[in-house]
């Protein structure tokens, strides 16, 4: 019986449309690795140059003399740099703290809405994120000028030099783009929480506000933390919006690091200490992020063991 079938030709894999690419695999793998490395290098080139320059004993960017660490302690001697760092920290810390607290509560409020309404407000929430920085910065500046003029016409006793430009405008402008980032981070966590949790708390007689603090916020704290980190990095790194809304408050210039560096490179006298500071910050960020990630993993492992 079986012999009858053996006369028929057996279809090969090729005839099924299968083509053997296994010989190409090592080549494509190497190509992939090379391309990945080139992209990675491109992303890191500027950081590498900054690190090299921070170790250069000469203050000229065009040639490398010898390795020296002198620019690192010199950071403290650069008054303008220290002022800029101080201004950046003050603005970013205030803006981040406010954005985290307000953003969390706002997100809870938006979450309590019906789905359709929430989507409409989330669309508006994304406007500051998606809007070009230059439009946000320029339009906020114009609005602040109008507000400033208005305040001055109402309170005529204010001194001529007084202006809202400086700390108030910077904090408001940073809040404007930081709050949406907090909300975007908190919202998915809210969706993950069990809605019965809050109902149970409220049914058991916990006051609504206390229920948020004791029940909801612990459940979404990972999102709040991620939102805070993102808001902080966005705020510290912001250039365009701060560029248009900076000014002096209490006689102190609130130009943040980016705005200050932009002004200085226009004059071509950037101290290598700025590079040293940036390198320190990069190393710190890297160590903090990896440390955070590793500690998170260890915690997870312990849980499984139990």
């Amino acid at each position: 019986m079986t012999d009858r079938y053996s006369d028929y030709p057996v279809a090969t894999l090729k005839e099924y449309g299968y083509r053997d690419y296994s010989k190409l695999k090592p080549v494509t793998r190497i190509l992939k690795q090379v391309l990945s490395f080139v992209i990675f290098f491109g992303l890191y080139l500027s950081i590498i140059i900054i690190a090299i320059q921070s170790l250069n004993s000469s203050s000229v960017m065009s040639s490398f003399e010898s390795i020296s660490l002198k620019w690192y302690p010199n950071i403290l001697q650069e008054d303008d740099l220290m002022t800029a760092i101080g201004a950046t920290m003050i603005v970013s810390l205030i803006a981040t703290a406010l954005a985290t607290i307000l953003g969390t509560f706002f997100a809870i409020g938006l979450y309590a809405m019906s789905k359709k309404k929430r989507q409409q407000w989330m669309l508006l929430n994304n406007v500051p994120i998606l809007n070009a920085d230059i439009v946000t910065g320029f339009s906020l500046m114009l609005m602040f000028i109008l507000v400033n003029t208005f305040i001055k016409t109402v309170f005529t006793s204010l001194p001529q030099a007084w202006s809202i430009f400086g700390l108030p405008t910077l904090v408001l402008a940073h809040l404007f783009f930081a709050i949406p980032f907090v909300i975007l981070n908190v919202m998915p966590k809210l969706k993950e929480t069990d809605p019965n949790l809050m109902d149970a708390a409220l049914d058991l007689g916990v006051k609504p506000l206390k229920a948020i603090v004791k029940v909801l916020i612990p459940a979404i704290k990972a999102g709040v933390f991620a939102g805070m980190l993102l808001a902080f990095t966005m705020s510290i790194d912001d250039f365009v919006i701060s560029f248009f809304n900076t000014g002096e408050t209490f006689g102190m210039s609130f130009d943040n690091l980016s705005v200050w560096i932009y002004g200085v490179i226009g004059r071509r006298d950037l101290s290598p200490s700025v590079y040293a500071f940036s390198t320190l910050l990069t190393i710190f960020t890297l160590v903090a992020l990896i440390g955070y990630e590793l500690s998170k993993n260890r915690k997870g492992r312990v849980k499984i063991k139990k």
Binding site: D237, F239, S258, Y275, S278, T285
Partner: peptide
């Protein structure tokens, strides 16, 4: 990570 370092300074580098 490079995203966290100052944009203006990176461009200047």
């Amino acid at each position: 990570l490079p995203m966290w370092s100052n944009l203006i300074l990176r461009s200047e580098a």
